[in-house]
Simulated scan of single mutants.
Amino acid sequence: MLEEVVATRYVTPLREGGSLPGIVEADDLGTYVMKFTGAGQGRKTLVAEVICGQLGRRLGLRVPELVTIQLDPVIGLGEPDQEVQELLKASGGLNLGMDYLPGSIGFDPLAYEMDPVEAGRVVWFDALINNVDRSWRNPNMLVWHGEPWLIDHGATMIWHHNWPGAQASAAKPYDASDHVLATYGPDVAAAAAELAPRVTEELLTEVTADVPDEWLVDEPGFDAPDAVRRAYVEALLPRAATIHERVTVGERTERKPSQAPGWLTDHLTPWPHTTGQGEHSKQKDSGE
């Protein structure tokens, strides 16, 4: 189970995130980047953050520590931004927090070096979770104390938006051509040899158990939260064994539109704006 804390002060919104995350202080004296259940992307974004974040941490990747955060909407009464107030009002109860990394800066592939082994581990992990949102356009990586950290895993495991087609979707290959680490010559085979055997049914069962029941209830086609958790295990377990054989690195699409789904590409245009679904632009959640 994730540690649960209580938000004591809403500090500031992060207007670089698609879900308008915010920095909050909590009763454990910690500072967190908070993502809200009332945001436009819905609770599945938070489910993906928990499963992929916890899995990455268990595999030895640098992912900020996660907590659940109880939010009393009254905390936002002093917030002058009406949009933020509405988000806080819609997010009373349990939300998600990621340890805030003070002083971190965005990862720039032109400014930082990374060896093929470490790059391969990140690319293999992103292939496993089908992360289409760690591209050269939007790295979703931070550098903190000289080390790269992986953030923002809400746009992963796209199959959970259509469970009837989940097995077929999870069996698809992974195109890493636009991945931010593609130019480092990632050694995906070495990463698979190291990490794939560690992705066991037991491990996946443990990380899916960290998702709160209330984010899984009433999922169409499932009669209980544990059944939803099992579906994630059944999608990820076979993918871990063979996805390295289906990772391709081709020519980048600098002169073409992003290959990411339309519901992810808002962040490629300047803030502020909204889409037809009311989503916001998304670059990266600095300090996440």
Rank of each mutant, 00 (worst) to 15 (best):
I51G: 03
V50R: 02
P148D: 10
P220G: 07
E245A: 14
Q82I: 05
T31K: 15
P109K: 05
A170S: 14
D175A: 04
L66H: 03
G103N: 10
T253F: 08
R229A: 05
T45I: 02
D133Q: 07
Y100V: 03
P173S: 09
G76T: 01
A168S: 13
A127E: 13
A241N: 01
V67K: 14
G120E: 08
T248K: 11
E118C: 07
L61K: 10
P238C: 01
A90I: 01
M157H: 07
G18T: 13
K256T: 12
S19G: 05
V123A: 04
L71K: 04
D266I: 01
L66M: 12
T242R: 13
T274D: 09
G165Q: 14
E118S: 14
R62D: 12
V217M: 05
K172F: 11
H145P: 00
T156A: 06
D213G: 09
A209P: 02
A224I: 00
W136R: 12
M157N: 14
G30S: 14
Q82W: 06
D133T: 06
V5T: 12
C52W: 05
P13G: 11
E65D: 13
L181R: 05
I69E: 09
S286N: 11
E214C: 11
E86G: 03
D187C: 05
D126K: 02
G106E: 13
F107M: 06
L94G: 07
M1T: 10
Y174A: 00
A235K: 03
V117S: 14
F125L: 09
A119P: 00
D187F: 01
E3H: 10
Q54P: 01
D218W: 07
G185A: 13
I75S: 08
L61Y: 06
V67G: 08
Q277W: 12
A209L: 10
I151T: 03
A119E: 08
T242D: 13
Q277V: 07
P164Y: 03
G22Y: 07
V6N: 14
E202D: 15
K44R: 13
R229I: 06
N140A: 04
G40T: 13
T248C: 03
F125R: 12
V117T: 14
P164A: 02
V211Y: 04
A224H: 14
L29V: 09
T269I: 05
V122P: 05
E202R: 15
V117L: 10
V67N: 07
M157Q: 11
I23L: 15
E194G: 05
R58L: 01
S258F: 04
P73C: 00
H161M: 12
M98S: 15
I243W: 06
Y232T: 03
G78V: 02
G120A: 12
V228S: 05
A231G: 12
R137F: 11
I75R: 10
E86C: 04
G92P: 06
G287F: 04
P212A: 07
V5S: 10
D218E: 13
R58D: 02
L268G: 04
E219T: 15
V117C: 05
L101Y: 04
D133F: 08
H267T: 00
A192C: 09
Q82N: 06
W124N: 11
Q259G: 02
N138H: 10
G250M: 09
V117N: 08
V84F: 07
L2G: 04
G262C: 01
L94W: 00
V217Y: 00
K256P: 01
Q283P: 00
L203R: 12
M34V: 15
V249P: 03
